[in-house]
Design a protein around this nucleic acid. Structure first.
Lengths: 146, 146
DNA sequence: TGTAATTCCTACTATCTTAGTAGGTTTGTT
DNA sequence: AACAAACCTACTAAGATAGTAGGAATTACA
């Protein structure tokens, strides 16, 4: 029941892009340095985000990436699903899963359904914009305390 | 983010023990047959439940297993934690995890905390007794429809 | 026009986890 | 004594995870 590094890193990448958005392109190299993640591995992760249309890429020198929409348009759930695949806690609940023959007598399935709902409810209700705001508030609080 | 077979099977085993409780010992062989799980694999799973004190074992011929307490004393969460280990979605939140150095600026950690709470809230609020009752209701509904 | 910087693409790999299998030992009943 | 059960430990095949590696394509800029 762990979220993989891929998923966790992807969320951090999206947050990094939102926090460092100046209108300019942001290079993988810079994200990798800030987030302390291998450049090469990040390349793969951001490629998935790009394929999903979450970021726009600009090739060549001075190229890089930018969020394709404003941060409030991306939920943590969207990002995790793109990088991790389904967030359902059992295969029976994956999209396109064929019903197993125990389904109708399977008392546990209902529990997994509740669990899936609870998980979705959290990750689909936090956006990258929320994380940006929390970060800002945290920094403000820090300022006052000095 | 999947629950392993071990955890899922463990819940089914506990439910099976609750449903088939006649006061007599229940043999692994019978559970395996009813649940359609390999006997040898089940042995390992039930051994974990036994070590945790969830079931009592009786060795020798006519031996087997029994729930050590009434079904309402076992939550799905307890069972999953015994067989799966921590249900926390990231290692940072595992019991006894040392704080990583990014913790204080890690906006995502708070999301994982919410997620952990949501997961716990589901699995810690469903007991084996609940599953037994749901099964009974389902069977009754079936009876009436005939 | 050349060169450096960047994304893009594909393959490879080492390690860990999962989901079992296998074989034997101990304990208790009949 | 024979049998049936739990108990114990080691092994293993397949897959997932978390990267590494190397180069090709594209573009800005000198």
């Amino acid at each position: 029941m762990k979220i993989s590094t891929k998923g966790r890193y992807a969320v951090r990448v999206m947050l990094d892009l939102a926090l460092n958005n100046t209108g300019e392109c942001i290079k993988v190299k810079d994200i990798a340095a800030r987030q302390d993640i291998s450049e090469k591995y990040l390349e793969q992760i951001i490629a998935a985000l790009s394929r999903a249309g979450f970021v726009n890429s600009v090739r060549g020198a001075q190229g890089g990436y930018r969020l394709s929409k404003a941060p409030e348009n991306y939920t943590v759930g969207m990002i995790l699903r793109v990088t991790e695949g389904s967030l359902a806690p059992v295969a029976c609940l994956d999209e396109g899963a064929e019903a197993c023959e125990r389904c109708d007598t399977c008392e546990t399935l209902e529990v997994w359904r509740e669990l899936a709902r609870a998980i979705d409810n959290v990750v689909d209700n936090v956006t990258i914009a929320d994380l940006v705001n929390r970060r800002k508030k945290r920094l403000e609080a820090l300022d006052y305390s000095i």
